[in-house]
Amino acid sequence: LQLFIKTLTGKTFTVEMEPSDTIENLKAKIQDKEGIPPDQQRLIFAGKQLEDGRTLSDYNIQKESTLHLVL
């Protein structure tokens, strides 16, 4: 599923993930694309901070959802 990642600077980029992927996987993918170390990434969806060990489906993140990346 394609997700939109929006940064505080207003930049938006996309990543391609599976619902079974963990937040950790997502942070690694963001590191590949943007060079931001996972330990500096905080991801927010629907007002909640996402925890590394959980999956996208745990948070009911669907295709074309927008996640906010806070550094």
Rank of each mutant, 00 (worst) to 15 (best):
G47T: 07
S57C: 03
K48P: 01
Y59F: 04
L3T: 02
S20C: 04
I44Y: 14
R54G: 07
P19A: 11
D39T: 09
K63P: 13
E24L: 10
L56Q: 00
L3K: 00
E16W: 11
E64Y: 13
P38M: 14
G10N: 13
K33L: 09
I36G: 02
T9E: 15
Q49P: 07
E64S: 04
Y59C: 03
L26I: 11
E24Y: 10
E18D: 14
D21M: 11
Q41A: 09
P19W: 09
Y59L: 11
Q40K: 11
L26Q: 00
I61G: 02
S65I: 05
D32V: 08
S65M: 13
F13P: 00
D21S: 13
D39G: 10
I5E: 00
L8K: 13
Q62A: 12
K27I: 02
L8R: 11
T7Y: 07
V15T: 03
Q31I: 02
G10A: 05
K11H: 14
A28W: 13
P38K: 14
M17A: 11
F13I: 15
T9N: 11
I44G: 05
S65H: 07
Q41K: 01
G10M: 05
Q62F: 08
Y59H: 03
T55E: 04
Q62H: 15
D58T: 06
E34R: 05
Q31H: 13
N25S: 13
I36H: 12
S65G: 06
T22E: 03
N60I: 02
E16C: 04
E16N: 07
G35T: 03
I23N: 01
S20D: 15
P38A: 14
V15D: 00
D58R: 02
K27W: 03
L1R: 02
T12S: 14
P19K: 08
E64C: 04
I30G: 00
D32A: 12
N25A: 10
L71F: 12
K63G: 11
L56N: 01
V15Y: 03
E34K: 08
N60M: 05
I36Y: 09
D21H: 09
D21N: 11
L50S: 01
F4I: 15
L3R: 00
T66V: 13
S65L: 05
E34D: 12
T7H: 09
L3A: 01
D58E: 05
T22V: 08
E16M: 10
L26C: 02
E24F: 09
R54M: 08
K29I: 10
I30D: 00
D32W: 09
I5L: 04
Q2H: 15
L67E: 02
N60G: 08
I5W: 01
K33E: 10
L8E: 13
L50V: 04
S57K: 11
S65P: 03
F45H: 14
T55P: 06
E51S: 07
H68P: 02
L3I: 06
K48L: 12
I36S: 14
P38D: 08
V70P: 01
V70K: 15
K29N: 12
K29V: 13
S20Y: 09
Q62K: 05
T7N: 09
T9I: 13
L43M: 04
T9K: 06
I61P: 04
K6G: 05
Q49L: 03
Q41P: 01
L56C: 03
R42H: 13
Q40A: 13
V70C: 04
I36L: 05
L8F: 06
L43H: 01
E34G: 07
S57F: 12
T7G: 08
K48T: 14
T9L: 08
L50P: 01
Y59R: 01
I36D: 03
I36P: 11
K6W: 14
R54I: 09
Q62T: 11
K33I: 07
K48I: 14
E34I: 14
Q31V: 06
T14A: 14
P37N: 12
E51V: 06
H68F: 05
Q31L: 11
T9S: 13
K11R: 14
I36M: 07
T12G: 05
L50I: 04
L1H: 05
K33Y: 10
F13Y: 07
L1Y: 08
E64L: 08
Q49G: 10
L67M: 04
D58M: 05
E16G: 09
G53C: 03
N25R: 12
F45A: 03
E64A: 08
D39P: 09
I44R: 07
F4E: 05
P37L: 05
S20R: 10
K63N: 07
L71P: 12
Q62Y: 08
E24N: 11
T7L: 15
Y59T: 02
T9C: 04
L50R: 00
I23W: 01
E64P: 05
I30H: 00
R54C: 04
L43W: 05
L71Q: 06
E51T: 04
I61D: 02
I23F: 04
N25G: 08
P37I: 12
I23V: 08
G53K: 11
V15N: 00
T55I: 13
T66C: 04
E16K: 15
I36N: 04
R42S: 09
G35C: 03
D21V: 03
D52C: 03
A28E: 07
E51L: 09
G53F: 14
K6L: 15
N25T: 07
K6Y: 11
E16L: 05
F4S: 06
D21C: 03
K27L: 03
I30N: 00
T66D: 06
N25L: 13
Q41W: 06
L50F: 02
P19E: 10
P37Y: 14
E51M: 05
K11C: 04
N60F: 04
E24V: 05
Q49D: 15
I44T: 15
L69P: 00
D32R: 09
D32Q: 09
P38W: 12
G10W: 04
S65E: 11
K63M: 14
A46I: 06
L56K: 00
L71A: 15
L71Y: 06
I23K: 00
E34V: 08
A46W: 14
T55K: 14
S65Y: 12
S65N: 09
L67V: 15
E24G: 09
